[in-house]
Nucleic acid binder design. Structure first.
Lengths: 340, 340
DNA sequence: TTGTATGCGTTATCAT
DNA sequence: ATGATAACGCATACAA
């Protein structure tokens, strides 16, 4: 391994001058800098990051914790995180939290051991009570989800507003028997979308039946969605629309409908949430709420760096990014014959 | 920040003893170790990784370079990498190479600057001529793809064999006019699957028409796949089956077929490759070749560590993992009426 | 503008 | 079984 000392020798200067050149200090004479650079080139010298980190007391690494990055929703956000981090010369350490017991402890260690400078948490659950302890000591931002009342910046769409908008949209299409397919987890988004649904129904003066609500499992698995959707479709009179809180669940609802010989959207309207990749690959293309995943990732990185500089907590508030209702094929004007 | 020194003071021992305790040295008396551990606990001491890395000359970080980890195929492999790394107490630094110009230079730096101990490359192209330079200096393994003739371990399925198997399977279903939907890239898998296809046809004594081969773009995008599939379906007489080299492309072929009012598999058989998540969510469920993605990721990590210990290059050969042809709905016995 | 010297927090060598 | 101390490679305060 070639060190800064060897470069100094070859360039005929001191290590301090090499270091200064490396860090673009204006205090080094151009001619000298040139000599140093040549030595660096000749020796193929690359600064040792471990040493630099120790000295500077930083790692230039951002931790990203995601429940499961095989989920396209998360993977797009992670891509945004990675892209922005790259631009800012940071690296991203990605950890799947799902399936790793006490990922919390590990997470803690990463920050405390100076392996990472800050952390972005995707999919924070409301029971992340331990989060507060770290949020005051390290730059942490919550992305997509957040723990209400926690002193920790976050970025997400307005889940309540988006749900309200979508359900209102369905009502304008003529639907009144609108069911909802949620999930059995503690995400704030799950709760807010449910509230948006309920308020939209209330505002329209529409009564909602208990049986119009069903839940998939915590991770929105396709199979659990199918099962829940089947229950919804067995209700009499059958709902004419199903508002799903994820695209996968919408796909599962469509699948369940087709099993029953129902046509979507002819006999049943189905809407998704997130607008992940495969929403426009097979018919019916999904009508859904698009989230600016990539942008959310980028924003999260900005917030981390902000916390890093301003001594964290500077802007410990929610950054809301715009969502968009995208109309495709899976939702249609209520077919009167189904109205019965 | 609390350091090893403070722990030593509190426990009434020297830093050496604390360090030994930390590293489970048998040379420390149980009673002493206990005192040290209590001090660590009381002070909430966490070892500084930067210092440790500098001293030990390692980072316990593995670099994973993927063209695009929003691709479920890659993301599953990355999950496997992450899982195995976690077990071995390594962290994984994931970088998207696509869209980042000179990702190569950056990659180089990561290893040379001791930011990472080794690297796993997903989606190596055949024009990665620079790879060899690093492969002899650092532990590097190629996953999924590999550069032929390169002195660098790799893990992948037998792409040639899998293609041969699938096309033979289609022939056994009665198909003779079998088209192929490939991609315009330099992946070895692309080439080997093409060869497997051609050999299967030759072995069956089936002539293949030039017009039976079409290419999607380099990244297997859905839109480009649709376009290529349309060309294939315009050929007279129309192929009765399309062998696609990715599931997305299979989906795009099905989509193109449906545009023409063709039923899959009634009027046209379509097969995919990889067996990613959404192959069994919408009908027709895809008949495809499943790859043990998670396992491939895990194996890659093993190989890296192996290189780390044995002074690399120890086993610079290809590790082939088993694939599996999974029969679902998109491929069926040739319908005689289509035979015309 | 450049050089000298110190310290960042560990681990490991050599004593004891 | 434990302690003192010298690296590890770099950045910077202070001198010159």
């Amino acid at each position: 391994m070639v060190t800064i000392e060897q470069v100094a020798q070859r360039a005929g200067v001191s290590v301090a001058t090499v270091s200064r050149t490396l860090n673009n200090s204006p205090a080094v004479k151009p001619a000298t800098a040139q000599r140093v650079r040549e030595a660096i080139e000749a020796l193929r010298y690359v600064p040792n990051q471990s040493a630099r980190n120790l000295r500077r007391n930083e790692s230039r690494v951002i931790l990203a914790l995601a429940p499961n990055f095989s989920n396209p929703y998360y993977s797009h956000i992670l891509t945004g995180i990675g892209d922005r981090a790259w631009e800012l010369e940071y690296s991203v350490l990605i950890c799947n939290t799902l399936g790793h017991a006490n990922g919390e402890r590990h997470f803690l260690k990463m920050l405390e051991s100076h392996r990472a400078d800050g952390a972005i948490l995707l999919g924070c659950c409301q029971d992340y009570d331990w989060l507060g302890r770290f949020a005051e000591g390290f730059p942490i931002v919550q992305c997509c989800e957040y723990v209400p009342g926690l002193e920790c910046p976050s970025v997400s769409i307005d889940n309540y507003g988006a749900a309200l908008e979508m359900v209102t949209y369905l009502q304008n299409l003529g639907h009144e028997r609108i069911a909802m397919l949620g999930a059995d987890n503690q995400y704030i988004s799950t709760r807010l979308r449910r509230e948006g649904y309920l308020d939209a129904m209330a505002q329209a003066g529409l009564a909602v039946s208990q049986s119009w609500y069903a839940q998939a499992d915590a991770v929105y698995s396709f199979a659990s969605g199918q099962e829940a959707a089947r229950a919804l479709l067995a209700v009499e009179p059958r709902p004419t629309a199903i508002f799903c809180i994820s695209d996968i669940l919408a796909l599962s609802a469509i699948s369940a409908a087709q099993e029953l010989g129902l046509n979507v959207p002819g006999d049943l309207t189905v809407t998704g949430f997130d607008d992940v990749d495969y929403t426009a690959m097979v018919h019916p293309y999904l009508t859904t709420v698009a989230q600016p995943c990539h942008e959310m990732g980028r924003r999260s990185v900005e917030l981390i760096l902000n916390g890093l500089q301003c001594g964290k907590g500077a802007l410990a508030d929610h950054a809301f990014v715009p969502h968009q209702l995208v109309e495709r094929e899976s939702a249609a004007v209520l077919n009167p014959t189904v109205m019965i």
